[in-house]
């Protein structure tokens, strides 16, 4: 019914939720960039500490936070495994036939896993504490200097918020069509990969047609209410950059600098 996966917004009252989305986007961006500058355990600890502190303050329950990250766990495990198995520097610590584990591989795997985990945590925290609308508003504002170079900042933000808005609609539509085809004897969990992919055709065709129809209707509804793109548009929710936002930004930069230098 409701997809609760990666990037899901978790509505709550917390200082982190109240921050200016621009501050949060830039802070998360700084941390993501910083993660690639860090190359020591101590550095990861500093940045990890900052992320965990933000998570605690945000009142997002750790359980649902981890659940939101679960889809990425698979990638995390696979990449680590590859490093452990195929990176052959340092000392041999385990050997059994073609499986040979070296200290260098384990070290690299740990770094990579930490880097990925922190990267995903930081971005998940951003989307968990910022509503899709606020996120789009913030992004639009941050990109607006580029609109002088004819970069469609407003349109991009509008597309993003529409896409996010229609994910639940599409998923409930998909559920409905799947049920209707199941009533006609369709089976979606039978057979090999190819058969399963073919079984989805009766779902994907109506879903695509529905999406196009909905897009047409939405465009018509927007135009009939006077929408003509970004030029000259004012906002109902004005973004305000206040002292706490500046403080958070400073803290994020400090954490990155600290992490990179340790």
């Amino acid at each position: 019914m409701l997809g609760r996966g990666l990037g899901q917004f978790y509505p709550a009252e917390s200082p982190v939720h109240r921050l200016d989305p621009r501050a949060k986007i830039v802070a998360a961006g700084a941390i993501v960039a910083g993660l690639f500058l860090v190359d020591s355990m101590a550095g990861f600890l500093v940045i990890g500490g900052a992320v965990v502190a933000a998570l605690v303050v945000s009142r997002v329950p750790v359980g649902s936070f981890l659940r939101a990250m679960r889809p990425v766990l698979f990638i995390l495990v696979i990449t680590s495994l590859f490093q452990i198995l195929f990176y052959r520097r340092g000392e041999l610590i385990f050997g059994w036939g073609w499986i040979q584990v070296y200290t260098g591989g384990v070290e690299l795997a740990a770094f990579l896993a930490l880097r990925l985990a922190l990267l995903i945590s930081a971005t998940t925290l951003l989307t968990a504490t910022t509503s899709p609308l606020a996120l789009a508003d913030g992004l639009e504002d941050l990109l607006s200097p580029l609109s002088r170079l004819r970069f469609p900042a407003h349109e991009l933000a509008m597309m993003m918020s529409i896409a996010l808005r229609f994910i639940p609609t599409l998923s409930s539509e998909a559920e409905k069509v799947m049920k209707a085809q199941a009533a006609r004897g369709a089976e979606f969990s039978e057979g090999g990969l190819l058969r399963r992919a073919r079984a989805l055709v009766p779902v994907l065709v109506p879903l695509t047609i529905g999406a196009f129809k909905r897009a047409d209707e939405l465009a018509e509804a927007m135009e009939s209410r006077g929408y003509r793109g970004g030029a000259g548009r004012t906002r109902y929710r004005e973004l305000r950059f206040r002292p706490p936002d500046a403080a958070v930004l400073a803290l994020a930069v400090a954490a990155v600098a600290g992490g990179a230098l340790v």
Binding site: K176, V177, A180, P202, V205, P206, G210
Partner: peptide, 9 residues
Amino acid sequence: FQFPEAQLF
């Protein structure tokens, strides 16, 4: 189903 025409493919 309701509005079954949505199942035509």
